[in-house]
Amino acid sequence: MYKLVDKRNLGPNLTLYEVQAPRIASSRKPGQFVIVRAFDHSERIPLTIADVNKDTGTVTIIVQTVGKSTAEMETLEVGGGFCDVAGPLGQPSHLDNFGTVVVIGGGLGTAVVYPQAVALKELGNKVISIIGARSSDLVIMKDQLGAVSDKVMVTTNDGSEGIKGFVTDALQQLIDNPDMNIGAVYCVGPVVMMKAVADLTAKYDIHTVVSLNPVMVDGTGMCGGCRVTVGGETKFACVDGPEFDGHKVDFDELADRLTTYQSHERHKDQCRMLKAADKIKE
């Protein structure tokens, strides 16, 4: 068992878990993830390592409750623990001093991109963060990101906070600002958002890194379920990624593959993801 030493609520449906996993804590580099199973019957799910403490041997993950596994995880209590935590998996981020970096998080991606913002700041970058959400009550991690950013911008679809619109509207403002010389963009969020951002930055030839979230099983390159097309080649996101050059990713294919267990009439009765989502709505 991997002991849970801290658990905190960070916002609506957002929970931080600090778990004892000394081997992972000592070998992890920013950008890598773990695969966890909360209980012995649970599915294996991938979660980005937000932070580690090498002295105490703990790993921090920030998890948004979206379905069955993440909901069940919330029933874990400090003192108890996770059945399995495996990692660190994936390639570490290729972080550098780019001068000015725009870090964009949409929805749950905000939690995933946070460690990158921390690391980019440590490397001496000027960090501007953009948080995108549907409405004000869904804006997460503003304080945490604020602490490591030179500036935080918020966009909401309904205009209840910050700029009304999408993260690309905020990004366009930054691009249009002649004093702003954007060296790179780091973007994690829903596939449509990453695609919109990559399309925009491609026009201005701004280096753009995205972190992909295909469905995974083993996380070690053994199953091929996480395959994505990047620059016309098949890549396994768990071993070759999860970060890729946003200008080369086939986002449409990824978005489509993500609906595998969700959308298809013929398979609906077998699709527990749908069932779990229904339960949460109830």
């Binding site: 599915e43 099983v217 083993d218 053994m222 199953c223 091929g224 379920g225």
Partner: peptide, 19 residues
């Protein structure tokens, strides 16, 4: 080969056996 409904045998068997 990346259509929904294409599995490697490793993925299919891992899902059905191990999981």
């Amino acid at each position: 080969e990346n259509l929904k409904g294409v599995y490697s045998a490793n993925e299919y068997l891992t899902r059905s056996n191990l999981m």
